Simulated assay, not measured.
Amino acid sequence: MIAMNTEIPLSEKNIILIGFMGAGKTTIGQLLANKLDRPFLDADQEIEQKYGMPVTEIFKCMGEPAFRQIEKDYLTKLCHNSRSKVVSLGGGSFMQDEIRQACLSSGIVYHLDLQWEEWLKRFEALIGTRPLLQSKSLEEIEELFNSRKIVYADNHYTIAVDAQNPEQIAEAMAQQIRVSWQQE
């Protein structure tokens, strides 16, 4: 278990969802936010709104390093200045040490864990909207998947998302979170 900032009451911490692209962070995050009566933020969607273009266009126009800086600025500020939200991170966000440390210290980080074979079933639906998939071979994507999974292991809770539907996953998470709030 990762140490958390104890100055923020557990019931006020942001709940942060991490995992590989296509793991269901946005879908499950929206369901979880509704169940907990909290606002939901999708980090990529928030950045898209601010810049008036999709992440794929930000990557093309500004480059990945610029996007990663935008992402870091947004998420570290959110972690330090915002409470009681459910936040879905982009698949690569957690790779940045500063973002990872801010999330782990000020929030409750859930890794939505998906096996490679299950992820492959989602590949066709993802390729058009995920900039990192558009220029990589399947072997390179699998390497990225495995390297990110190592970093995602630095979390408070891991939830296997292969065998359940998003509603079941969100409900199980909400029950677990409510119990932890009652034990405060």
Rank of each mutant, 00 (worst) to 15 (best):
L78D: 04
L78N: 05
Q96R: 10
Q183V: 13
F20S: 05
P131N: 07
I2E: 11
K121S: 07
N146F: 15
M1Y: 14
K121Y: 06
E71P: 01
F94I: 04
P166H: 08
W119G: 00
G92A: 06
Q164F: 15
A174H: 00
I108M: 08
L78H: 02
Q30F: 07
I47V: 05
P166V: 06
V179H: 14
I18P: 01
L41S: 10
R148T: 12
T158F: 09
N81W: 10
A163V: 12
Y157E: 12
A125M: 12
L133G: 00
M95W: 06
L41R: 05
S137N: 09
D113I: 08
S180H: 13
K50A: 14
G19S: 04
E48S: 01
H80W: 14
F145K: 04
V86N: 02
L89K: 01
Y74P: 03
M53S: 04
S84Q: 10
M21S: 11
F20L: 08
M53L: 03
G128H: 12
G29E: 03
Y74R: 00
P65M: 13
E139H: 08
K149A: 12
Q182R: 14
Q45P: 02
S135K: 12
H80P: 13
G19K: 01
L104W: 07
L17V: 07
